[in-house]
Amino acid sequence: MKVAILKLRGILLTSIPIDMNDEDAMAFQADVLRMLSDTEATGLVIDITAMNVVDSYMARVINDTAVQAGMLGAQVVLCGMQPDVALTLIEMGRELIGVETALNLDQAFNRLETMIEEREA
């Protein structure tokens, strides 16, 4: 299963599908890094609107992807977390998601633009 990664105004946008397995996750991380490198994007939005379940495995995939993207100089924002997923994640472990988060795509873009501006200032 190929995860689409789109570029919009210097920012990469991707949405994690509901059933992502180990192999998909590895391919996804490699694709994100290749796209970041090829497009010289300075930001990455990871949308998880489709995800009903973010278990510790998926939390790790998200965190690892963000760390890897950061190494290529991209700022990362996670968005689209469902309220019940947030409740479940807090119960699971407070430190599970170590990524900047925003409510929705709009706010994620605003946040990223601010983060990128601040960094370049």
């Binding site: 009903n52 379940v53 973010v54 278990d55 510790s56 495995y57 469902q82 019940d84 997923v85 409740l87 479940t88 119960e91 699971m92």
Partner: peptide, 17 residues
């Protein structure tokens, strides 16, 4: 409840993993 459904699904996912 919805949050209980998500808690259960997440737990099953952890245990199955």
């Amino acid at each position: 409840s919805q949050v209980a459904v998500y808690s259960l699904a997440t737990s099953v996912s952890e245990l199955a993993n």
